[in-house]
Computed example of a mutant assay.
Amino acid sequence: MMAAVGAADVAAGPSLGFLPLMSLGPAFASLVGGWRRTAGIGVIALLLCAGLGWYEELSDVRRGSMTIASVIGVTAAGLVAVSMRQKREAELDSVRSIAEAAQRVLLKPVPRLAGQLRAAVSYMSAVAEARIGGDLYEVVATPHGVRVIVGDVQGKGLEAVETAAVVLGAFREAAPDETDLAEVGRRLERAVDRQLDGEKFVTAILAEVRGEEATFLNFGHPAPLLIRADTTVTWPEPPAYALPLGLGAHGTVRPEPYRTDFLPGDQLLLYTDGITEARDEDGRFYPLEDRAHLLKDNDAESALETLRQDLLHHVNGPLHDDAAMLLLRHRPHHGGTTPDAGLP
């Protein structure tokens, strides 16, 4: 930029006075560089002004002084701006570190193996810079079977994160203690009712896998996707959908547990509505059932990553809602050709 200003000044001569535009160099340097770079560009701008003034035999002392003063003033302002920008960047790095620590506490990595289950999880925030959001998940191996939860808190921001922490805390405490999955759900209801006010709510689905059977408890959450070993796809749905957590004050009937077979080689995908409600450029929802065949990789994480990439390709842009997926695979007792059959 300064070279262009210098060339224009030489071509036009001293009559037009392009030299004050040399201050654009340190001005733009402060936006992307540190204080050393900004100060260095300012010194170069001063030398160019002095050199071009001598070359053009600039005799107007007042005009030359104003040019030098403008470059010095902009350079000084740039150094102040650099200091303020670096301070904000340091504060942002600190906030991101805290967010990452909060994520490790709130959304712990799920166990790769839980009983006869192989688990994998994928979480995508609607905000590119965000580390955590309102979606939640957990897998707990208990004496009563492997119990999992996937949920979606209404709203975004720190308030949603706080509510997600309440739900996960209540689930982690109740899952190992209660012999009945319905009682786990009731403890979640009580915890959320104490936390939420007004019309805020949390959709959630609880699942318990014991032997070759899966039991579900659905609080207004999308039905899971069950992929059989022979690749047929079903959607285990409750007889009637109950209201989400937090809306129990409306006096509706509580959700009732319902069951389905979950056999060796089967896969169960629990997810939030950020998956099924993701739209492409033409407004079409993501066809999750048609993409179930993508979960064929022997490695559960790789299979889930393939599905995630396909979702992002479908959207072809940023997500408009948080999206979480939890994949459970029932490992066969003996070797076979089904996914994860080679795992111990």
Score class of each variant (00 low, 15 high):
123 Y>D: 05
245 L>V: 06
318 P>W: 12
230 D>G: 00
66 M>A: 14
103 Q>R: 15
247 L>K: 03
248 G>C: 04
180 D>N: 10
255 P>D: 05
332 P>G: 11
153 V>W: 01
25 G>H: 11
316 N>Q: 12
84 M>F: 10
133 G>Y: 02
67 T>V: 15
294 L>Y: 06
279 R>W: 09
303 A>G: 09
28 F>C: 07
206 L>T: 07
250 H>E: 04
141 A>P: 10
130 A>E: 11
63 R>F: 08
19 L>M: 12
246 G>M: 00
180 D>K: 02
99 A>M: 13
58 L>V: 11
135 D>Y: 00
161 V>Y: 02
250 H>K: 11
269 L>H: 03
122 S>D: 12
103 Q>G: 12
143 P>M: 04
102 A>N: 13
91 E>M: 13
343 L>K: 03
212 E>R: 13
307 L>S: 05
249 A>M: 09
164 A>W: 04
328 L>M: 08
207 A>T: 12
69 A>Y: 12
326 L>Q: 01
56 E>V: 06
98 I>W: 08
167 V>Q: 08
112 R>A: 14
131 R>K: 15
27 A>S: 10
20 P>I: 03
100 E>F: 04
340 D>G: 14
139 V>C: 07
343 L>P: 03
169 G>M: 05
190 R>I: 05
256 E>D: 08
100 E>Q: 14
109 P>Y: 08
291 R>C: 07
